[in-house]
Design a protein around this nucleic acid. Structure first.
Lengths: 209, 209
DNA sequence: TCCTTATCTTGACACTGTCAGGATATGGGG
DNA sequence: CCCCATATCCTGACAGTGTCAAGATAAGGA
């Protein structure tokens, strides 16, 4: 497992005795950080806007000014999540040999890394309908993220829709099943062996020569 | 266990003038049907127990007696969903040649069929935390469903955890991406071409000889 | 200094899931 | 036949949720 992209800064201790200034200073960033913590603890389905506000030490209606509504907050969080998702792939590629095939496998490993390290955020990005995927910023971040794999396929000699779909589906299937705790046969393996097996499985989707 | 419902009202407008009998007759089945409709229309994240009760033409607390709480209803729905998921695979296999490899591909096609035909239910089965997967009935149905693919892999000559994982991940990745409207390159294909491409991609995951 | 703007709080509303207690039908025993 | 134990369903209440309206407070420029 390689380095993960830095998480949003952890939320403040929320000292109840401390007199908090009326203006927070950087509430937007604090709310995003609190939202991701809430997401990790309660899941997408248990996500509560008021709980996020409470965690950030602010009134229940404070998020509205920065994000409009809950969908707006989750949209911003998803956009940031897609950027970190892309960064997870880049981190793996930086450690891999420059061979196009190896780079493609590395991207797939980063795909799986991200899903296993932050399953709730992965869920928000790929299976939730709560973010507004019509939003410009989120749309751009999302397209950039899953276009990256497609580009890697081309670089590795893929030419068809089938090539793109196969690699994407294999990486995504592994990521989703592993993130949700299935594929126990792989999960119980020691990390190095598991990683090697994932790489081997990813290679099956590669265009054959 | 469940009798065939005499009338599974597909969309009961809850006729206000009609005097409904105090006892419904087969409320449990009607609630399950209403729940799946609600699921299809609003998605897992928009699911509302009260809305289900209203759709079935019954008071908001009526479901409690049959299912306990919302989790209980979704657990029962998920168990039924897994059985139908398995049936979708079996339906494809019945039309395929008896060759083990072809049977395995057929199972994968059924896997994808189900996800595309009923994406919200697929989402409930695989990505939701609302059903109680510790429940005995649901656990049995779930295990039977995703054990089937693994058995097919063995029959087709698969011997390793990698073989099982590869086929499962490929089928699952295709199903999830297609159900959520991604993989547009495949979605825009005519059905026969799309099906052939999916089969071809599934074959990539098969153990090579 | 004063006023405009941004930021945050308080209060309210409709909706949700769940619980408690009451109403009604069903079926079997007397 | 009557009666009542039980299953079934309803009404009402409560806390929690997202969102809106209106007010309070701070920041910054004229």
């Amino acid at each position: 497992m390689t380095d993960q992209p830095p998480r949003l800064r952890p939320s403040p201790p929320a000292d109840p005795g401390a007199t908090r200034p009326y203006h927070h200073g950087d509430l937007r960033a604090a709310l995003l950080a609190a939202a991701e913590e809430e997401l990790a603890e309660r899941g997408v389905e248990g996500f509560s806007l008021r709980q996020v506000a409470k965690r950030a030490g602010v009134s229940h209606a404070a998020p509205a000014h920065h994000f409009g509504d809950a969908k707006g907050l989750l949209t911003a969080l998803a956009a940031e999540g897609f950027r970190q998702f892309l960064a997870a792939q880049a981190a793996r590629e930086a450690e891999a040999p420059p061979d196009p095939g190896e780079q493609l496998v590395a991207a797939g490993l980063g795909y799986v890394d991200f899903a296993m390290a932050r399953p709730a955020l992965f869920h928000l990005l790929w299976q939730s309908e709560r973010p507004d995927f019509g939003d410009a910023e989120l749309g751009q971040a999302a397209r950039a993220a899953f276009q990256h794999l497609v580009d890697q396929v081309s670089a590795a000699g893929g030419t068809s829709t089938a090539d793109e779909g196969a690699v994407w589906a294999m990486a995504h299937g592994l990521a989703d099943l592993l993130a949700s705790g299935r594929l126990s046969g792989m999960l119980t393996l020691p990390p190095e062996a598991r990683e090697a097996m994932i790489a081997g499985v990813l290679r099956r989707a590669l265009p054959r020569r």
